[in-house]
């Protein structure tokens, strides 16, 4: 309660974790890379670094959706589906109607899904988890119908998406050209825009935000629409990276995107965290996945590990914040 608390070393560490999650996170990342280097000497190279970045970027972008929604105490489990739909629409519509209209339709459908999520969460007050799962289910149905009824004359992946997804310049992946401005914008907006601040305010204390005159539904509606747009754009990038249009393209990223944000120090209860930590979290997960693959841990083991990470980090977070 007072300023003159004499914290134990444990609670001091806890405070550091809560206040500056970036430092210990980067430490963890370096540690993981070191372990990887010991497990498999010679794996570290400029090429490996570039590749890791390339794989981490779509994950980090979807994790932006989780970070922003989690700041308000929400979550968006439809991002994988939205990204998949956006990619599939672009790839199959481009040969029919040209690249720009195809992308426009792809992003428009991402907006629609986001709006539906926003409506259910903001106006009907459905729990974000249930709502986004539901829209994902419906949207997948639409995708399947689309796939059956629209005779695709073939798949065309726009050149600039290929350049963005797979190209390299100076040894670094071109996707950084999209990601760096994106990350800068998000990190700027979370602290220096009114909208970003309100996300923290709602997550920290929705009743207090309301008493301060914030109409919470407006923020939720905007937020989930924005989340849809980010997921849609990520789908385009992922299409350029994977180079095929599949009906389950980005679905495997759903769970890791939540895990990346949680590991990055964003509280699933809202009000704490930020995108900086999430980026490091996405890198940690990517390196961890490489490691698990090297150790031949199957997919099932990976899911268990991710689930346990989410649970234990959240439980730890509750302990740390209650102590203070």
């Amino acid at each position: 309660m007072t300023l003159t608390d004499t914290p134990s070393s444990l609670s001091r560490f806890g405070r550091l974790m809560v206040d500056r999650p970036l430092l210990p996170l980067i430490g963890l990342l370096v540690l993981l890379i070191a372990v990887l280097a010991i497990l498999n000497p010679g794996v570290l190279s400029m090429f490996w670094a570039g590749n890791t970045l390339k794989i981490a970027i779509p994950l980090a972008m979807l994790a932006a959706c989780q970070t922003l929604t989690m700041l308000t105490g929400g979550i968006d489990l439809s991002v994988g589906t939205v990204a998949t739909i956006s990619a599939y629409l672009t790839a199959t519509l481009a040969p029919l109607i040209g690249v720009p209209p195809a992308i426009a339709i792809a992003l428009a459908s991402a907006v629609v899904i986001g709006l539906v999520n926003g409506f259910g969460i903001a106006v009907c007050r459905v729990h974000p988890l249930i709502m986004t799962l539901g829209t994902a289910l419906i949207a997948t149905g639409f995708l399947l119908v689309y796939q059956r009824y629209v005779i695709a004359t073939g798949v065309q992946i726009p050149d600039f998406l290929l350049w963005l997804g797979t190209g390299r310049s100076f040894g670094l992946p071109n996707s950084l050209a999209l990601f760096i401005p994106f990350a800068v914008l998000i990190i700027w907006a979370q602290r220096r825009s009114g909208f970003g601040r309100l996300l923290y305010a709602i997550g920290a204390n929705e009743a207090a935000a309301r008493l301060s005159g914030v109409r919470v539904w407006q923020v939720h509606l905007t937020l989930y629409t924005l989340s849809g747009v980010i997921a849609g754009v990520t789908g385009l990038l992922y299409l350029g990276q994977i180079k095929t249009a599949s009906l389950s393209l980005a679905l495997p990223l759903d769970l890791p995107s939540v895990a990346a944000a949680v590991i990055g120090g964003t509280s699933i209860f809202g009000g704490r965290g930020g995108y900086g930590g999430t980026i490091v979290g996405a890198l940690i997960l990517t390196v961890l996945t490489t490691m698990l693959t090297l150790m031949q841990i199957p997919e099932g083991g990976r899911r268990i590990l991710f689930g346990l990470i989410i649970l234990s980090v959240t439980a730890l977070f509750i302990r740390l914040t209650e102590r203070n």
Binding site: G194, R197, L198, A201, A204, N205, A207, G213, V214, R272
Partner: peptide, 27 residues
């Protein structure tokens, strides 16, 4: 009921200034 306990003094004080949609942009 009034405070954003996990946020800074500045953010707490500034909330009403940002509440309206027209103040959602750059601060």
């Amino acid at each position: 009921h009034a405070l954003l306990m996990s946020r800074s003094v500045r953010e707490n004080i500034a909330v009403p200034l940002l509440a309206r949609v027209r103040n959602w942009g750059a601060i």
